[in-house]
């Protein structure tokens, strides 16, 4: 089974180790993993900021790079959703591209969803000891139904205790460009998220979307917490 890894631009730039962790997980699940070398960004920032034209260009680029594999997997609910559910809208006016977008749409998965529901991974390769609290990122949760999947994977690590935070499903306030347009509001929302997470006294805050994690980490550090790690689920599942 050939799975193409869509690393996502944020992971590429900020946290390559998440990309490698995803790679390891896919290989552990028995996939032949391909990493298309020219990949950049799925175009979600353009689409969400109202730039239809740029969104079309980037959608076509991703489709051309990623079609033809059995699956496309991204360590992000937000990017996976963009490819799965938005590309067909973005390319609605071009029948040929629309057809290609629809085909790709059926093949793209968020990482934990893929591991649990497609390849049914039963033994994650990592060893992580300690308690974690899990933040449900909005797009993954509400558009792709990512809720049980990361928890099922965490449950495979015998040393992990999951401590649910209050309002785990509440937005962390990131919102992409929102966080740099309305920084004060965004940070205030992030503070509520951090407080709820910290209140669990978990050893680590874990999530599945790097945007949210950077937001939470940035707020946490500003609040003076230099200690609590903020980790992507792939990092936890592959921890050594």
């Amino acid at each position: 089974m050939r799975a193409a890894l869509f690393v996502t631009c944020l992971v590429d730039l900020m946290r390559p180790r998440i990309g490698f962790a995803a790679l390891e997980l896919l290989e552990a699940a028995g996939c032949e993993v391909v990493v298309p070398a020219t990949q950049t960004c799925c175009g979600q920032p353009a689409w969400n900021s109202g730039d239809h034209c740029a969104a079309v260009t980037l959608a076509k680029k991703v489709i051309a790079e990623f079609e033809g594999y059995d699956y496309v997997v991204a360590p992000s609910g937000s990017c996976a959703d963009h490819i799965r559910n938005e590309y067909p809208k973005i390319l609605a006016a071009e029948p040929e591209w629309l057809a290609r977008a629809v085909t790709l749409s059926g093949q793209v998965f968020e990482l934990t969803d893929f591991l649990v529901n497609v390849v049914k991974l039963e033994r994650v390769p990592g060893h992580f000891a300690g308690s974690v609290t899990y933040h449900d990122s909005c797009t993954g949760l509400r558009s792709l139904g990512i809720k049980a999947q990361p928890r099922a994977l965490l449950a495979q690590l015998p040393g992990v205790e999951l401590k649910e935070m209050r309002a785990a499903e509440d937005c962390c306030g990131f919102g992409g460009a929102f966080s740099i347009k309305f920084g004060a509001v965004s940070a205030a929302i992030a503070e509520r998220k951090c407080n709820n997470a910290v209140a669990t006294e978990a050893d680590a805050i874990v999530g599945g979307d790097l945007g949210c994690l950077l937001n939470i980490e940035g707020k946490l550090r500003r609040l003076g917490d230099d200690r609590t790690p903020v980790l992507h689920i792939a990092e936890v599942l592959t921890a050594k």
């Binding site: 690393v7 390559p16 990309g19 004060a184 965004s186 980490e217």
Partner: peptide, 24 residues
């Protein structure tokens, strides 16, 4: 570069190389 972000948050530092570089 991102004054609004910095209003209430720090900006987490990147690892220093991109995934694509490291993968290559």
């Amino acid at each position: 570069l991102v004054p609004e972000w910095m209003l209430g948050r720090d900006f987490p530092a990147p690892e220093g190389k991109t995934f694509r570089e490291l993968y290559a």
